[in-house]
Amino acid sequence: MNAPKILSWALLGGVVALSAGCDGEPSSPNDVNAAAAIAKEIKAAPDDAEKILEKHDMTEASFEALMFEIAEDPEKSKAFTEASK
């Protein structure tokens, strides 16, 4: 009787944890590298900036938010600066 309840609570907890993890903007170093790759792409073809963002499922607003988030973190901003050169 108790086993199904425990299992259901465990599943619910897992779902909550996953949704919390996916909720925010990119936050791991990999995301910084991805942002740096997008930045390099835009620098290479400035006229296609909007199209490049669309290709990566981003809007101007979400891209600005990502830039702010990276800038606020010393390590991320350093990593982004080096990776986007």
Binding site: I42, A49, E60, M67, A71, S77, K78, F80, S84
Partner: peptide, 23 residues
């Protein structure tokens, strides 16, 4: 509109680098 959007995106690219430089 197009040019300003492009300019904003290009300018936004500099934010992490400038924050790093300021630190």
């Amino acid at each position: 509109k197009e040019s300003s959007s492009k300019a904003r995106i290009l300018a936004a690219l500099d934010l992490p680098s400038q924050a790093h430089a300021l630190r």
